[in-house]
């Protein structure tokens, strides 16, 4: 009497199972003539039940209501956790197809006449109820997620409306701009630019004077190169002073004109709308400068 080792038996079983699954799940499964519940169960056990895509693909191939329902339930659970509406929407037709196939196979005539039986008829009857329940759960989940999204959108709209209303209130509190305000603001900016130009004149003149003083103290002709450098520096300082003078002059004249016109307009509008701008100098131990102040 021949006996086989446990290893050989195990290898043979594994080979047999893998051959059976290959036959069932290979592309040729569509052309197979018959399917028994046992063969379907074997094929089902080879499918990765954590992957809804793999389950759906195998379910289509086998026409298996069990796998359709498992894929639908996996998607429903994930949608329930993540509140992902797309997943829930994807789950619905899978559960509906499970229900279609189960209802078809639960019909006695259909089951008797078919050579393609992914489940026993009794199980098909059970699956009709299970898939119906799944469809109801998925539809309820879709409705719940849609309601959550609608409420969130409403809350966001209310928040935006409140922010917009707060902005309007702030504008109302400030009131409309008084007459001449634009001119006064523009004039003030031009005055500030003019003051800056005057400061540049000061800087240019100071640099020029420094270059001149250094040039006079040079030992010529030994330091003739340095003299050329100082000459160029003096020329740059003069240009700076010239540009500063032009900017300062234009800025001060234009600014003073605009401010004057703005103040005049404000005074014409009435006593409540008066405005003033003061330009003056200031001196301290560290230096001095021009000061611009006003109210409007």
């Amino acid at each position: 009497m021949r006996t086989s080792s446990p290893l050989a038996t195990g290898l043979a079983s594994a080979l047999g199972l893998s051959l059976a699954l290959t036959c069932l799940l290979a592309p040729g499964v569509a052309s197979a003539k018959r399917l028994t519940p046992e063969q379907a169960a074997e094929a089902r056990s080879a499918v990765d039940t954590t992957d809804p895509d793999a389950m759906e693909e195998a379910a289509e191939e086998l026409g298996d209501p069990e796998l359709f329902l498992r894929a639908a339930e996996a998607l429903r659970l994930e949608a329930d956790t993540t509140r992902d509406l797309d997943l829930a929407i994807r789950a619905l037709p899978l559960a509906q197809t499970a229900n279609d196939i189960a209802a078809y196979l639960a019909d006695e005539r259909n089951y008797k006449n078919s050579d393609w039986r992914p489940v026993e008829r009794d199980r098909a009857v059970g699956l009709v109820a299970e898939s119906k329940e799944s469809i109801q759960s998925i539809e309820a989940l879709i409705a719940a997620i849609e309601e959550e999204r609608r409420k969130a959108a409403e809350e966001e709209a209310a928040r935006q409306a409140a922010l917009a209303a707060a902005g309007e209130d702030e504008k109302k509190k400030r009131g409309p701009m008084k007459p001449g305000t634009g001119m006064i603001i523009g004039g003030s900016a031009a005055l500030a630019l003019g003051v800056g130009g005057v400061a540049i004149v000061g800087v240019g003149l100071a640099q020029g004077n420094a270059a001149q003083a250094e040039a006079e103290s040079l030992d010529l002709p030994a330091e003739i190169d340095r003299l050329s450098e100082l000459d160029a520096a003096g020329s740059r300082a003069n240009n700076l002073a010239l540009v500063g003078g032009i900017v300062g002059g234009v800025g001060l004249i234009a600014g003073a004109t605009l401010v004057a016109l703005g103040v005049k307009k404000r005074k014409q509008a009435g006593p409540d709308a008066s405005a003033s701008v003061q330009v003056g100098g200031y001196f301290s131990a560290q230096g001095g400068g021009l000061q611009l102040s006003g109210s409007f």
């Binding site: 569509a30 052309s31 289509e60 026409g63 197809t97 279609d100 078809y104 259909n110 078919s114 050579d115």
Partner: peptide, 17 residues
């Protein structure tokens, strides 16, 4: 909506030879 069955077998959505 619905599913199709040909000669007692579920017809995949993509069709069948």
């Amino acid at each position: 909506r619905g599913s199709a069955f040909v000669d007692g077998r579920y017809l995949p959505k993509a069709g069948m030879a």
